[in-house]
Amino acid sequence: MAILEVRDLKKSFGGLEVFAGVNISIEKDQIYGIIGTNGAGKTTLFNIICGVLRADQGSVLFNGEDISKKPTHKIAELGIGRCFQTVMPFKSMTPLENVRVARATAGKKNKEREKFSIDEIMEITNLTDKMHIKTQELSLPDKKNVEIARALACNPEIILFDEVSCGLSGEEIYSRMELMKKLSKMGITVVVVEHIMLFIKEICDQVSVLHSGKVICSGTPQEVARDAGVIEAYLGGKSNENIGS
């Protein structure tokens, strides 16, 4: 059974139709990539899964249970974690406090799923020597790390990452990829939205491409890179050089 499934999702903002019947099914322990051009609706999809926005139609199933009417904090308690595209750490707190409060809230509800201690979380997110500095004083990559650490502290079954590599250097991106792989190996399902194709190709088991309100293609990164529709959507059919390379 899929851990997370989106069925026949429809959503419009006023006259703007973002989803015209989207279906996505994510298997447990996969690394699942979602790609699409700017404005394709990737962040909106995450917002609907998390209950921040409501779909006009369709449903979101988490472990078979319909969560599309649940409030966000309940969805978090069920085991869905998230990192935001625009970083949103709790800036007046230290990284340690960010993690502590997550551990004491959703993390407490999901104690039986606990995979990392607070010290381990600090270590894998490279925050050990910065954990007592106010988060607002940290660099952007570190703020992103704080978000990852906070999501991990919730003991989630699945984490949604919205462009975690955006604005990072090559080395930092590489360490992010390693981290994603590590989480997946430890039994946390990972969903990534990324613009960097190498990232997707390197780590994802499955990819879906959002375009004009639909999933125009799903499959392994290789399959997706060869798909004529995807090439058309991304490059107007000129070449497939950039996709999958």
């Binding site: 998390c50 921040v52 409030p71 966000t72 904090h73 978090a76 308690e77 974690g81 998230r82 935001f84 949103m88 750490p89 709790f90 800036k91 007046s92 707190m93 406090e97 502590r100 409060v101 997550a102 004491a104 809230t105 959703a106 993390g107 509800k109 978000e147 906070r150 999501a151 502290a153 919730c154």
Partner: peptide, 19 residues
């Protein structure tokens, strides 16, 4: 800490299970 989380970013606060 929950108080401060709600003040800093309500959306992120919800996302860690805060009512």
């Amino acid at each position: 800490l929950r108080f401060k989380a709600v003040r800093d970013v309500p959306t992120a606060a919800r996302m860690i299970g805060i009512n």
